[in-house]
Design a protein around this nucleic acid. Structure first.
Lengths: 193, 193
DNA sequence: GGTTGTTGATTGACGAGTCAATAAACATGT
DNA sequence: ACATGTTTATTGACTCGTCAATCAACAACC
C-alpha cells in the first residue's frame, strides 16, 4: 500500500482532519487517534509525521492562518483607494474559507491554546500584527493619527463577531457579519474625503 | 476537624480555586486534584460537594456571571438618562471584578466549553440575552429601530475587547478598553439629541 | 538492501470518580 | 452528666478507563 511521496499528502490530510475534528468537537480535547482515523491512517503514522499532538495542532493553526492571510491578500489585490483597501481587509476576514463553522471553532480553540503554548501565542501575534498593519496602512491616509485607534476598534470588532459566530449552530451569516463591521467603519470614516 | 456548616465555605473555596487555577493555566485542562489542593482539601471532597468536574466548572461560571451581573446592575443604579444607562452597561462590563486576567481567561474558556456543553451554552445565552436587553432598553429612546443593530455591534465589540485582553500578560487596561467601546458608542449616537 | 510508508500491540502515565473508614459535632433519652 | 445513635465532614487508597508516545515488524518501492 505504501505509495511513495506520501508525506505531504498525509500531512495535509492530518491538518484537514484536525480542523474538522476540532471544529466538530468544539474543543481541543480530541485524541490523535480520532484525527488519524478521520484522515484514514493509524495514530502511529500521525505521530511519525508530526512528532507530537501539539505539533499537529500548530500545523493546523498555521494552515488556518495561512488560508486567512491568502484571502485577505486576495481581497486586497484589486483594491486601489485607501478606503477600498480597508474594506478589502474587513471583507477578506469574512471570506468563505475562514468564516465557516469549522474554522471559527478551531480559531477560538487556538485562541485558548495561545494562553498556554508559547508557540501558538507567537503565531497568533504574527497574524494580529499583520491585520493591524494592513488596517493602519489603509487608514492612515484617511484618518491620520487616529489610524491606530480605529484599527484597534476594527480588530476587536472582527474578533468579537468571530467569537459570537462560534456559538451559533450551523453556518454563520457572512453578509450580516461583514455589514456590521463595514457599518462601523463607515461611522469612523464619516466626514472623511 | 469537621466543623459543621462547612458546605457553603467549601463550595465557595472550590469556586474561587477553580477560577484561579483555570486563569493561571489558561485552560480547562486542569485536574480536580489541582483545584482541590488550592482550595485546601482533598479531591474526594470536591467530588463529594459537586459530583463532577463539569459541575465545578459550571458553578465557577455561574459565580463569574453573577459578579458580572451585579456590576452592571451597580453601574446602572445611578444612571437615569438613556444615554447614561447605555454608558453604564458598557462601563459595568469593564468593572474591576469582571475585567481582570483570571476572570477573562475563565470567560474565554467557558466560551469554548459552551461549544460542547449544553449547560454552559444555556448559561452563556442567558448572559448574552441580558446584555442585549440592557443595551436595547437604553438605546431604543435614542436610536429607535436601529437599537437592535447597535446593540449587536456593541456586544460584539465588548466580546472582542475581552477576548483580546485574554492574550496580554498581566492585568488588562480597564480605561483603554472602556474608552474604545464608549468611543464607538459616541459615533453611533452622533447627531442624536 | 536500504529507504520510505505503515500498522498492531504495548507501555506508562495520568486522572475522574468511588468507597470504606474515621472523626467530630449534634440530638435524644435516661 | 452520660451513654447512644445519627448526621456531616473528610480523606487515603483504589478502580477503571483513556491516551500520548514508542516499538517491532512488515510491505512496497528503488
Amino acid at each position: 500500500m505504501p505509495k511513495l511521496g506520501a508525506e505531504p499528502i498525509r500531512r495535509a490530510a492530518l491538518v484537514k482532519a484536525t480542523i474538522e475534528t476540532v471544529g466538530e468537537a468544539g474543543s481541543l480535547d480530541v485524541t490523535v487517534a480520532q484525527i488519524a482515523r478521520r484522515a484514514g491512517m493509524s495514530s502511529a503514522l500521525a505521530h511519525h509525521y508530526f512528532g507530537s499532538k501539539e505539533q499537529i495542532f500548530l500545523a493546523a493553526m498555521r494552515a488556518i492562518l495561512s488560508i486567512y492571510g491568502a484571502e485577505v491578500r486576495g481581497a486586497l489585490a484589486t483594491a486601489r483607494a485607501p478606503r477600498d483597501r480597508v474594506r478589502a481587509v474587513v471583507m477578506g476576514s469574512f471570506a468563505a474559507g475562514s468564516f465557516r463553522h469549522e474554522a471559527i471553532a478551531a480559531w477560538l480553540n487556538f485562541y485558548v491554546l495561545a494562553q498556554s503554548s508559547a508557540d501558538a501565542r507567537r503565531l497568533l501575534h504574527v497574524y494580529q500584527r499583520r491585520l493591524r498593519s494592513n488596517l493602519v496602512h489603509g487608514l492612515r491616509p484617511l484618518v491620520g493619527a487616529r489610524a491606530g485607534a480605529v484599527a484597534e476598534g476594527l480588530g476587536a470588532l472582527i474578533d468579537g463577531v468571530y467569537i459570537r459566530a462560534a456559538l451559533v449552530g450551523g453556518e454563520p451569516d457572512r453578509d450580516a457579519a461583514c455589514d456590521l463591521v463595514l457599518a462601523h467603519l463607515e461611522k469612523e470614516l464619516e466626514g472623511v474625503q
